[in-house]
C-alpha cells in the first residue's frame, strides 16, 4: 500500500477532533506551585513576626493544632493573651460538645505588644494611618502621614497598643489611599482588562503599591498613571504570571 492511499483512507474517518481537556503547561504548574509555596512561607513569617511581638508562636501553633483536632466537635470561641513578667501565658479555648484548654509558657522578647488592631486604626484614621510592620528587631513600627503626638496617641489607642513601646515613621501615603489603588488594580485584573498586569500588592514598609507587569504595556502604564502618578505605584517587570492565566484556565 502507498502512503497516499493510507492518507486517503484516514480521510474517510470521522473528522471530529475529540475534546481534550487542555492541560496546564509545565512552566505554569511550576510557577503556580512556587507561588503557593511562597504564599505559605510569607504567611508563616508574617504570623511569626506578629506572634513574636504580641503572641508566642509556639503556643499559637500548639493551640491551633488542638483546635484543628477538635474542629468537628466545637468552634473557636475566644483567645486571650496576657503578660507575666518576661513570660506570656496564652490560652486557647474551645466550646462545643467538648472543651479543651491549652496553656503553654514560652520565652519572648522584652518588649510586648498586644495584637495590633490595624483594622480599627485604618477605619478610624483613614487619612493619617499609613500601615504598620515589625522591624528587624521585631518592634512595631506605625506609619503616619503626619507624625504628631496627638496622631500617635490616637492611632495607637485604636490599634490597642502602647504608644510608648511603638516606633513611628512619617510616610507620604495613607494605607486607605494605597488600598484604594490596589482595589482598582485588582478590579481590572479580575476583568482581564490588562493581561500584562499580573500582581498587585500594598507594600506597607515601602509605602507604595507594587504592581508586576509581564512586559512593557503602554496602555496598562497609562492606566496606572491615571490612578496615581505621584509615586504611590511602583511598577516592576517579571515573568511570574498568572493571575489572569490561572483564572482563565481554572
Amino acid at each position: 500500500m502507498k502512503k497516499e492511499d493510507l492518507f486517503e483512507a484516514i480521510g474517510e474517518l470521522d473528522s471530529n477532533i475529540p475534546q481534550v481537556k487542555k492541560s496546564m503547561p509545565v512552566w505554569l504548574k511550576v510557577t503556580a506551585a512556587a507561588a503557593c509555596f511562597a504564599f505559605v512561607i510569607a504567611g508563616i513569617r508574617i504570623a511569626d513576626s506578629f506572634n513574636t511581638a504580641g503572641r508566642p508562636t509556639t503556643t499559637a501553633t500548639n493551640a491551633m493544632i488542638t483546635m484543628e483536632s477538635k474542629e468537628e466537635q466545637g468552634t473557636i470561641n475566644e483567645f486571650s493573651a496576657g503578660a507575666k513578667e518576661d513570660k506570656i501565658i496564652y490560652e486557647g479555648a474551645l466550646v462545643g460538645t467538648e472543651t479543651t484548654q491549652t496553656t503553654t509558657e514560652v520565652e519572648t522578647s522584652d518588649v510586648f505588644h498586644p495584637w495590633p488592631d490595624a483594622e480599627s486604626a485604618l477605619k478610624n484614621n483613614f487619612d493619617i494611618y499609613g500601615g504598620c510592620y515589625l522591624d528587624e528587631k521585631q518592634e512595631l513600627v506605625v506609619l503616619l502621614t503626619e507624625d504628631t503626638p496627638e496622631n500617635r496617641e490616637k492611632v495607637c489607642a485604636d490599634m490597642n497598643v502602647n504608644a510608648e513601646l511603638a516606633k513611628f515613621r512619617e510616610v507620604k501615603y495613607s494605607k486607605a489611599y494605597l488600598d484604594a489603588i490596589h482595589d482598582k488594580i485588582t478590579d481590572v485584573m479580575m476583568n482581564r482588562q490588562f493581561e500584562t498586569i499580573v500582581t498587585s500588592g500594598v507594600m506597607e514598609m515601602e509605602n507604595y503599591v507594587e504592581v508586576t507587569l509581564t512586559e512593557e504595556d503602554k496602555e496598562a502604564i497609562e492606566f496606572l498613571n491615571r490612578l496615581d502618578n505621584t509615586g504611590a505605584i511602583n511598577i516592576v517587570y517579571g515573568s511570574v504570571s498568572t493571575t489572569a492565566e490561572l483564572i482563565a484556565k481554572k
Binding site: 500500500m1 502507498k2 502512503k3 497516499e4 492511499d5 493510507l6 492518507f7 483512507a9 484516514i10 474517510e12
Partner: peptide, 21 residues
C-alpha cells in the same frame, strides 16, 4: 505527514482486491 504514514505502509503497489478500503 506522508513520510510519517510511509512508516506504516510498505509503499509497494497492492492489488486492490487485497485491501478492501
Amino acid at each position: 505527514i506522508l513520510d510519517e504514514l510511509g512508516e506504516i505502509v510498505s509503499g509497494k503497489d497492492t492489488p486492490e482486491a487485497e485491501i478492501d478500503r
